[in-house]
Design a protein around this nucleic acid. Structure first.
Lengths: 205, 205
DNA sequence: CCTACCGATCGGTAGG
DNA sequence: CCTACCGATCGGTAGG
């Protein structure tokens, strides 16, 4: 009856994971101590080990949860044959923007701290990233063949797209001036119009 | 006569700074030990302190040398009245690309590790960055007024531009497939055409 | 530039 | 979930 130990533990575990994500982003993985995390959860550092195996485990969890979100979304996009390549790419870009807006802690940790993953996780993570990049390149190559996308080096376009959204880190500190909607539409406009074949020229003014 | 101690010390000091930049990029500031740096220079950790005051000093030097390079280039651009806003922005972008290609260690440290700068350096660095961003925004605003640049939120465009070039980090690991020239022209094409008013439409095919 | 060393802090364990 | 604690490593100093 009442609160089961299992449910309590589950909640505690989530609190630890959330605190870790926030601290890993703010201070970096190495500069974050187990005592920092414990303080934010309200327990002693030693008590953390009743919920987790190690500090590394927390990093692994965060990095692969993010990686999974991106690969899952890309796979789901494959089941929508009504979208052309440029629309597909725009959908990916919008998903990235939303992830950076809504899950800054986790996404930044996956981007900036994944290098501290222990083996074999580090290699696995990097390989997943490479596969993801290759899939996006293929979308662009198809878009070029079908005349929807200008002929620019697909690999370079992917690098620019995936990195450009990292700027959202700085937007988070100055939300006041630009709304989420403005941020998303401006970023999509800049990065998608930059590769569209026949930019919508309503009438060459 | 022969090699003066001063010259020897100067060279040693440069070796230390170079080793620090490389290690700070590869392992991060916190994960890099003074013993790591000393090993790469071929001396004992304690001996480093005959050349530097602290580990923090090494980070400061790297971060502000990079910041200086960018602000100096932007100021020099102000003395060229023959360039319009879009050309100015393209010149800035090309400079960023070259810095990322030629000085990866220092530029990445300035981007990824500057958060570990001690006060008041951290605040100074962030303020310099904000000023730099504001100046780029003004170039874009002028370009919009003069009809050279599409009407997109200047702040968002600046964020995308400054972040997109961070993708060059990954290019460094796979140089084989894409040359420096291809990288630069593809990236400039993508990011500049994305904000140009009347994209060069040779003939609406 | 080295040997010798310090106080602080780290991730993690023992035992309850 | 806590108290008590460990071995390792950290940035840095003393003294020569």
């Amino acid at each position: 009856m009442a609160k089961s130990p299992a449910r309590k533990t589950g909640t505690r575990r989530e609190m630890i994971s959330l605190a870790a994500a926030r601290l890993f982003r703010e201070k970096g993985f190495n500069a974050t101590g187990m005592r920092d995390i414990a303080d934010h959860v309200g327990i002693e550092a030693a008590s953390l080990y009743n919920h987790i195996r190690s500090k590394s485990e927390l990093l692994q969890e965060i990095c692969f949860r993010v990686a999974n979100a991106f690969t899952t979304q890309l796979n789901e996009l494959g089941n929508k044959p009504d979208l052309n390549s440029l629309e597909r790419l725009e959908a990916v870009l919008r998903f990235h923007i939303r992830m950076w807006v809504e899950q800054l802690d986790e996404v930044m940790v996956a981007n900036n701290e994944s290098a501290y993953l222990e083996e074999p996780y580090n290699t696995t993570f990097q390989n997943e990233r490479k596969t993801y990049v290759r899939q996006l390149e293929q979308i662009i190559e198809e878009g070029i063949r079908h005349g929807q996308i200008r002929s620019v080096k697909p690999y370079v376009v992917v690098l620019s797209l995936l990195s450009a959204v990292r700027g959202i880190e700085f937007w988070h500190r100055t939300k006041k001036n630009v709304s989420i909607a403005e941020l998303e539409s401006a970023m999509v406009s800049h990065l998608i119009e930059g590769i569209r074949t026949n930019p919508s020229v309503p009438g060459i003014s």
